[in-house]
Amino acid sequence: MGWILFVLYLAGLVYFMFFSESLGRTEVSKGYRYNLEPFLEIKRCIRHWQVLGPVNAGMNLLGNVAAFVPFGFILPMLKRSNRKWYVVVLFSLLFSLCIEAVQLVTRRGSFDVDDLMLNTLGGFLGYLLFLLMAGMRMRRHRAD
């Protein structure tokens, strides 16, 4: 079941990151777009919240976190060795780096170091959710 969820999640993520018309992913930029300065885009979204609007600013900040929560939740279900926090954080960072690199090379979106941080945070939050759910499941089994 975990592998099926993981493949469906990856397919959905690839669609939204590279092909979603609603996110402007069908347009290819003329040049490479990137941000290598940590917190630049995060500060911009917070500082210009009123101008960008809650949907655009929230989508950038919360959307990047939310996009990786399933990754951090499902990854520990696939293998016991994935049940350590640092494994989930490392894989979240590496997977995010792959996505950002493909966005840079294909010029669909931009490479943003802030996205790496937000995506990795999302993976870690997904891992914490996995731990919470696993703990609840264990308590329920002990009660039975």
Rank of each mutant, 00 (worst) to 15 (best):
residue 2 G to E: 07
residue 3 W to Q: 01
residue 3 W to S: 02
residue 6 F to M: 14
residue 7 V to K: 00
residue 8 L to A: 15
residue 9 Y to L: 11
residue 10 L to M: 13
residue 11 A to R: 02
residue 15 Y to Q: 14
residue 16 F to S: 12
residue 17 M to T: 13
residue 18 F to G: 07
residue 20 S to Y: 04
residue 21 E to V: 11
residue 22 S to E: 11
residue 25 R to E: 07
residue 25 R to G: 01
residue 26 T to G: 03
residue 28 V to D: 02
residue 29 S to T: 15
residue 31 G to Q: 11
residue 34 Y to W: 11
residue 35 N to C: 08
residue 36 L to D: 02
residue 40 L to K: 15
residue 42 I to G: 08
residue 43 K to V: 09
residue 44 R to W: 05
residue 44 R to A: 12
residue 47 R to E: 15
residue 52 L to Y: 10
residue 54 P to M: 12
residue 55 V to L: 15
residue 55 V to A: 15
residue 56 N to V: 10
residue 64 N to G: 06
residue 65 V to H: 03
residue 67 A to V: 11
residue 68 F to E: 08
residue 69 V to H: 03
residue 70 P to A: 05
residue 71 F to L: 13
residue 75 L to P: 01
residue 75 L to Y: 02
residue 76 P to T: 12
residue 76 P to G: 05
residue 76 P to R: 10
residue 77 M to L: 15
residue 78 L to Q: 02
residue 80 R to Q: 08
residue 84 K to D: 08
residue 84 K to T: 09
residue 85 W to L: 12
residue 85 W to V: 07
residue 85 W to Q: 02
residue 85 W to G: 07
residue 89 V to A: 15
residue 92 S to L: 04
residue 92 S to G: 13
residue 92 S to N: 04
residue 93 L to D: 01
residue 94 L to N: 09
residue 95 F to E: 04
residue 97 L to K: 07
residue 97 L to P: 04
residue 99 I to P: 01
residue 99 I to R: 04
residue 100 E to S: 03
residue 101 A to T: 15
residue 101 A to G: 13
residue 102 V to W: 02
residue 102 V to Y: 06
residue 104 L to K: 07
residue 111 F to W: 14
residue 112 D to K: 05
residue 114 D to C: 06
residue 115 D to R: 05
residue 115 D to I: 03
residue 118 L to P: 00
residue 119 N to L: 05
residue 121 L to C: 09
residue 122 G to L: 03
residue 124 F to D: 00
residue 124 F to E: 00
residue 126 G to V: 08
residue 127 Y to C: 00
residue 127 Y to F: 14
residue 128 L to T: 12
residue 129 L to P: 05
residue 129 L to N: 04
residue 129 L to T: 13
residue 135 G to K: 14
residue 136 M to H: 05
residue 136 M to Y: 07
residue 139 R to N: 11
residue 141 H to A: 10
residue 142 R to P: 02
